[in-house]
Amino acid sequence: MGLEACVGGIGLVAPGMADWAAAQPLLRGEQLWQPTPLAAPKPDLLPANERRRTTTLIRLALAAAEQACSQAGVAPEGLASVFASAEGDTEIVERLCTALNMAGKPVSPTQFHNSVHNAPAGYWAIAAGARLPSTSITAGVASFAAGLLDALCYLQAEQAPVLLIAYDVALPDSLSAHGDVQQPFACALLLSPSGEGPRLLLDGITTGEPSAVRADLDALRRANPAAQALPLLHGLANGKAERLALRYVDQQLLNVVLR
């Protein structure tokens, strides 16, 4: 029994790619990618009072999630979700560890509850009124592929749609020399058992090199674990039947067929 899904909606927020509509000609090679700094993402679903408490990472994830839902015309409250982020909110890690080394330990209560890896999922649930199961995972550089696997497993078990969101922000100054995320990137896929849109089939796990993308985009792929989705996003933008390989753990690859 193969794992498969229909891709009903896509969201993308990245430097030089404000949304999925803007990204498609670029992914198809009609335009070159320019690493234009990302404008502050502004998710609409979150009430202003909640949005004020959030961080760049949370807003980035929610903006991609919203795009995928609105593109598919699907109400977000009826969706289960998988949030995949390699590093979580490193901006908060920096602030927490700074505060812990100051007199009086001025840790902000809001920052502390935002520090949990599932903070974007928590805000999404509040914003969307989504009460269904939601998970927040990491698998390092394999986070996108691990998230895709997790979402496909949920979909198969429950025969219900699931929203996959993969996202990371660039590491803050203090940590940037020690880790691997240099650019912000978020993408979201609304996966359903059936419906309009391309079908995605899992075609085994092998070893080797992930599918190549153009050199300019390959730099982005290497600059953010969520951008390991780029070969898949490239295939979805091209709209052709294709077999592609996504970076999984160690030298493993997740092979995916688009139809």
């Binding site: 949990v116 890896h117 990491t138 696997l149 497993c153």
Partner: peptide, 28 residues
């Protein structure tokens, strides 16, 4: 085999049972 860390605060290591069951059921 398939690997992930679930980090959903204080429910993290209960949810691993659900995720593992789904991966086994899917044949992964």
């Amino acid at each position: 085999g398939p690997v992930q860390v679930i980090s959903t605060a204080c429910s993290s290591s209960a949810k691993v049972f659900a995720s593992a069951e789904r991966h086994i059921a899917a044949g992964l």
